[in-house]
Amino acid sequence: MPLPRWNLQPNSLHVEGPDDLHAILRLLERHGVPYAKAPLLPSLPRIVDTGGKEPLLAGMPRAVQVSTGRPIGFVLDADSPLASTWNAVRNRLAEAGVPLPQAPDPTGFIGASPAYRATVGVWLMPDNEHDGTLETFLRSLIEERDRLIGHAGAATDRAKQLGAGFPEVRQSKAVMHAWLAWQEEPGLPYGAAVTARYFRHDSPAALAFVAWFRQLYGLA
């Protein structure tokens, strides 16, 4: 599925990688955020793949400093764990004059940089409360009665015992891709699987995320 033609959109949402970009974009579309509609709403942000958590953090202060008069958002995995990710974000945003609370708000952070007159949003995956990643967020979008996800977990454990090479920290990603391998169209990437409705769209974390997104970018 092609990306929207968003090169000229001044607002931006910065994410860690391509999985985040596509999953978030397609989830927003399922919530009626009009990324598929031409012309694009001027307030809709470009979703920027920054190439990883470290580059995202490194670019954060400058990205805020050059965003005078516009909103800018950041989505990071809370996998290192949540408290230290939040601490890293606080330090980076302090450089751009954005005061952050000690701990993230479950509804996502939205604040301002008075010095640079930018509106700044931060969301920690999955829900600003628990350690986790995009996969934890997506896991909450799998039907409770789904019988395959338990099997995907067990099969992945077994694969690890048999010598599968993925590291411990990527366990949830391995489970998710095992589960995706058994859907009607096997092996779709996250974004396409969201569009194909293999995932739900309305877990509490997803609803809170979309509400945060709409508030940050001023979408009704």
Binding site: S12, P55, G59, V66
Partner: peptide
């Protein structure tokens, strides 16, 4: 705002790599 935002070489490189406007 009261002052310009100045980027040095590293800032220029990072903002360009990440497509920051």
């Amino acid at each position: 705002i009261e002052q310009s935002v100045a980027l040095d070489a590293e800032g220029i490189r990072i903002t360009a790599d990440q497509g920051i406007e």
